[in-house]
Write a protein that binds this DNA or RNA. Structure first.
Length: 826
RNA sequence: GCCCGGGUGGUGAAAUCGGUAGACACAUCGGACUUAAAAUCCGAAGCCGACAGGCGUGCGGGUUCGAGUCCCGCCCCGGGCACCA
């Protein structure tokens, strides 16, 4: 055994041991409870970042902990390998996306192995391989045939200079990131997944997910956004519109219908187009509305503008004429692309009516009589529910009665009905990009859109292409798109769009159960492992990825592929990793961001930071505040340097100790030093035990009932109290306080009096055994090495989790506190 | 703009059901050991104040014998907003 703690050597030895015993390979075992522990798979961006290390450390701690509790644990790993960064790298470095991606996978896999994660690598998958995406294409054709995938127009960001579609991320202040051109909205045909068909089920099932954070369930609930309301039909005014028809709007406030003074439609609405045809000024406004991106945050924060169309519709109850306006805040993609405006009781309509001097008619009296007329400035009370006024026969009715009465009258007239509406929209999956899964469709002049038959799958993505950043390369490759129609055999054109990369990540967790299955998307093994027992990943995925996965699991269930409806039983959303930023001001208002590794800190006598200087030139830099680690702020700390210098166990320990898993983690060099020091102390204690203490162990053990000297009994009591706390905290996923408990145990053991050598040896042996087991999910290498060296066993991975013994011996501090509290209350 | 979180010493944090705020660490200061340094060990410390004492969980109110914890109103920071992954 080494005298000094040398992590590199013991970590390599432990990893080789686990590799040679195939320790983490699992098969279906009906004799044990299964525990499927999954961390969100990484995008192979180049090298691991601190967020990955944190994510997979948390997952590994849970996986190893449950293995010690007797579970059959599956922890797989794979690669979310399609996406835009590969194309950007291709443009910048002239490397094909496939080559770049596979090189990154190779490098990052080695990094993961170096961290000692208990992963079953036999199940590894990469979404960019035909073996994976052929099943995605196969499912696509099934869902298309079931009507769960359909085609319609969708709105995208169009860069008119590069003549390419931009992601929202690529639109900066309304301009294309490369060309700088003003971005326009453009409508193109796209495929959509009918997630709204599952809206109600996805919403209801949230109530049966006790293992999910309330916060995430609430976000999903609001995202799905079920609202009960009334669809109101405003008949067209023949004299201005020139044809018969109705303008449909949806409202949750049908009680205010008598207060509607105008209607507003989106710029893309057919009525707007009709009016613009004979009105150049309006046409210019409609064109102006096309400028800018499609992101909701952009639309919601822009200045509200509108213009009258000169068209009118008829109020369905009063018969009055209402003007039709075009407004930039009405979204074509939500509801009917038209709203009724009730300025007296809606804040946005109120502002709009004041700006354009439109009539305001109050129809709800305050239940408290707080206001008589709606006058500027807006107060929130205007939108409160109350009794109707100025509404003829409906006067005096309260909200629900008014809605019921008005809906009934509309229905009698055939001009509306009660309806449920969701905020959730169908999922547009078409991308005009190269590095993604090809959509398996063929367009035939005679037969229309025809799915690629099973025997022609997969539609393989060609890997030898030139990426220019202008349009999709597939659309320029005749060899790819020229094909014949599977139905009639005539010349046809293959779809050149690829799928949203969220599609791949919506089912990878099911494929892990049977990653070697060559004949089917999933096989019956999936029903042993699914659902995932514990899913761990960033809070930034709280809505989209998790909702799409919940939808996909149900769609696959309804295709008879899997029994589970919910993919993830328990969810742990980890916080971000943040670090201090430093910069210098450059000419022209720009900032030069300086990596924390290149900055030296000055402190005052209390330890407060007073100044920072650049290591290279000793000149001062500005302290910019704590932000998420990112390339743009150059505040990322490379985990590789940390592993090289301190070893995997220290990296894992620091990350687990610095913050509870669901909160943000602040990077700190000195915190790493502290973690490293603690492991050295653990090593030294284990070393002293093997070389000196063990010799004093009595032949016949007296623990647990033996009468120890009082001070040693106290040490033992402390160890078990902290162990109890640690076990409790494990259940709550408060791993940072588990580490605190381990530190307290070591403190107690180090201070144990040694005057009674054999009694001390017994307490030390028990304490060390507990400490190593308690730490082994977090720092498996050092625990494994000491476990062997101290003669406890040959491998720690299957050793049982320690249980605190002799309840009577362990004075429960909580009980004590409650007793004291009781006295105070009494 | 909308939805969801968070805010406790110089720093990361702890406080389990409303009951001793700051456990455990980092940083700092002091000491031991050392020719010296590193490493290690011991000790001090929320803030203001010489002391007495006072003030302290983002700010302002409230409930309670008692509030970091519950309620109301603000401020600031972060995540998401459907084509970043």
């Amino acid at each position: 055994m080494q005298d000094k703690y040398q992590p590199a050597a013991i970590e390599l030895a432990a990893q080789q041991h686990w590799e040679s015993t195939d320790a983490f390979r699992v098969t279906e075992d009906a004799g044990k409870p299964k525990y499927y522990c999954l961390s969100m798979f990484p995008y192979p961006s180049g090298k691991l970042h601190m967020g990955h290390v944190r994510n997979y450390t948390i997952g590994d701690v849970l996986a190893r902990f449950h293995r010690m509790r007797g579970f059959n644990v599956l922890q797989p790993m794979g690669w979310d390998a399609f996406g835009m960064p590969a194309e950007n790298a291709a443009i910048q470095n002239n490397v094909p996306p496939a080559k770049w991606t596979y090189a990154n996978i190779e490098y990052m896999k080695a990094q993961l192995k170096r961290l000692g994660f208990a992963i079953d690598w036999s199940r590894e998958l990469a979404t960019c391989t035909p073996e994976y995406y052929r099943w995605e294409q196969w499912l696509f054709t099934r869902l298309f045939e079931k009507g769960l995938i359909y085609k319609r127009l969708g709105t995208v960001n169009w860069d008119p200079v590069d003549e390419t579609v931009l992601a929202n991320e690529q639109v900066i202040d309304g301009r294309g990131w490369r060309s700088g051109a003003l971005v326009e909205k453009r409508e193109i045909p796209m495929y959509y997944m009918k997630i709204t068909a599952y809206a109600d089920e996805l919403l209801q099932a949230l109530d049966h997910l006790p293992g999910w954070p309330e916060q995430v369930k609430l976000m999903q609930k609001n995202w799905i956004g079920r609202s009960e309301g009334v669809e109101v039909h405003f008949p067209y005014d023949l004299s201005t519109i020139g044809s018969s028809g109705v303008l449909k709007v949806f409202t949750t406030r049908a009680d205010t219908l008598l207060g509607a003074t105008y209607v507003a439609v989106a710029a893309e609405h057919p009525l707007a187009a009709q009016a613009a045809a004979s009105n150049p000024e309006l046409a210019a406004f409609v064109y102006e509305c096309k400028h800018g991106g499609v992101a909701e945050a952009e639309l919601a924060t822009m200045e509200k503008k509108g213009m009258p169309t000169g068209l009118r519709v008829v109020h369905p109850l009063t018969g009055e004429y209402l003007a039709v306006w075009v407004a930039n805040y009405v979204l074509m993609g939500y509801g009917e692309g038209a709203v009724m405006a009730v300025p007296a009781h809606d804040e946005r309509d109120f502002a709009f009516a004041l700006k354009y001097r439109l009539p305001i008619k109050m129809v709800v009296g305050s239940p408290r009589g707080a206001y008589e007329n709606t006058v500027a400035p807006w107060v929130d009370a205007y939108a409160e529910q109350g009794r109707l006024v100025n509404s003829g026969k409906y006067d005096g009715l309260h909200f629900q009665d008014a809605v019921d009465a008005i809906a009934a009258d509309l229905e009698n007239k055939g001009l509306g009905e009660k309806r449920v509406q969701y905020r959730l929209r169908d999922w547009g999956i078409s991308r005009q990009r190269y590095w993604g899964c090809p959509i398996p469709m063929i367009h035939c002049g005679d037969c229309g859109d025809v799915p690629v038959p099973d025997d022609q799958l997969p539609v393989v993505l060609p890997e030898n292409v030139e990426i220019t950043g202008r349009g999709s390369p597939l659309a320029k490759m005749a060899a790819f798109y020229d094909c014949s129609c599977p139905k009639c055999g005539k010349a046809a054109k293959r779809e050149t769009d690829t799928m949203d990369t969220f599609v791949e990540s919506s089912w990878y967790f099911l494929r892990y159960a049977c990653a070697d299955s060559a004949g089917a998307m999933v096989d019956p093994r999936v029903n042993y492992w699914a659902p995932v027992d514990q899913y761990i990943g960033g809070i930034e995925h709280a809505i989209l990825h998790l909702l799409y996965s919940r939808f996909f699991t149900r769609a696959m269930r309804d295709c008879g592929l899997v029994q589970a409806s919910e993919p993830f039983t328990n969810l742990l959303t980890q916080g971000m990793v943040v670090a201090e930023t430093y910069y210098r001001d450059l000419d022209g208002g720009k900032k030069q961001w300086i990596n924390p590794a290149d900055v030296s800190i000055e402190r005052d006598e209390r330890g407060r930071i007073v100044a920072a200087t650049h290591v290279a030139d000793g000149q001062p830099v500005v302290i910019g505040g704590t932000e998420k680690m990112s390339k743009s702020k150059n505040n990322g700390v490379d985990p590789q340097a940390l592993i090289d210098q301190y070893g995997a166990d220290t990296a894992r320990l620091f990350i687990i100790f610095a913050s509870p898993p669901d909160q943000q983690l602040e990077w700190s060099d000195s915190g790493v030093e502290g973690a490293s020091r603690f492991l050295r102390r653990v090593w030294n204690f284990g070393h002293a035990f093997t070389s000196e203490v063990r010799a004093a162990l009595p032949a016949a053990r007296t623990l647990p009932s033996g009468d120890l000297p009082a001070a040693l009994a106290e040490v033992r009591r402390e160890v078990h109290t902290h162990l109890k706390q640690a076990s409790y905290d494990f259940g709550k996923h408060q791993f940072n306080t588990v580490v605190s408990a381990a530190m307290k145990i070591l403190n107690a053991l180090e201070r144990a009096p040694r005057d009674d050598a054999s009694a001390h040896a017994e307490v030390a042996e028990e304490g060390l055994s507990i400490l190593l087991r308690l730490l082994s999910p977090i720092t498996p290498h050092i625990s494994h090495a000491l476990w062997q060296d101290c003669g406890f066993g040959s491998d720690i991975v299957d050793v049982k989790w320690p249980e605190p013994v002799e309840a009577a011996l362990v004075q429960d501090e909580l009980e004590l506190v409650l007793q004291v509290n009781g006295k105070l209350r009494g």
